[in-house]
């Protein structure tokens, strides 16, 4: 009788586990993607700037908090978040331990430049030649934004536009604590 009860427990646990998996699979957020690259060292970037005036090397910014935004001129959501990105850079640009870069994704240089002329710009952008940077960072599409800490570790990945609550959370709970070294993310 005791063994029978043990098997009951096994069966119930098994069924519960299966139901939990089904629930997660069927009613969970299908757009949720596992953030595999979080807490990993940021892949090195060596890329030409959009305006071709210099080579941008990520490792040269070791010791700084780096915000990396992947965008394209054809991306509608990028247009929505653009003023929020400008606001982030405006807020922290005087901090010597902060730097922000845009990574132009699957785009044409002249269209990207026209986009920046139209929507304004206050930070530097690089060109993702052959998609190597975006694939290195596991980018699915644009916009995506990464926050890299002073040690070169990726601390946050935002899939989708940075606006509204996401913007506030990113500024107050992600970037500022890193710059102040006050709290882990």
């Amino acid at each position: 009788m005791t063994e029978f009860r043990t098997w009951h427990v096994f069966l119930l646990l098994g069924l519960f586990g299966l139901f939990a998996l089904f629930y997660k699979g069927l009613w969970g957020d299908p757009t949720a993607l596992p953030p595999v690259i979080i807490a990993e060292p940021a892949p090195e970037i060596v890329a030409p700037s959009l305006y071709g005036d210099k080579q941008i090397v990520l490792s040269e910014h070791r010791g700084k908090v780096v915000v990396l935004n992947f965008w394209a001129s054809w991306c509608q959501e990028c247009k929505l978040e653009h003023k929020f990105l400008l606001a982030i850079n405006k807020r922290f640009e005087d901090n010597p331990n902060f730097v922000m870069y845009g990574v132009n994704y699957q785009d044409k240089d002249h269209l990207a430049k026209a986009y920046l002329d139209q929507h304004g710009n206050n930070f530097e952008h690089m060109v993702d030649l052959k998609g190597k940077i975006s694939i290195d960072y596991g980018v699915y599409g644009v916009p995506e934004t990464f926050i890299i800490d002073q040690d070169g570790i990726i601390r946050h990945k935002q899939i989708g536009p940075v606006l509204g609550d996401v913007f506030s959370d990113m500024v107050q709970n992600k970037i500022e604590p890193l710059l102040n070294k006050s709290a882990p993310l």
Binding site: L33, P34, V36, I37, E40, I135, D136, Y137, G138, Y140
Partner: peptide, 8 residues
């Protein structure tokens, strides 16, 4: 690729 995008 798995290290960048996960098992997906």
């Amino acid at each position: 690729f798995v290290s960048r995008y996960g098992d997906y």
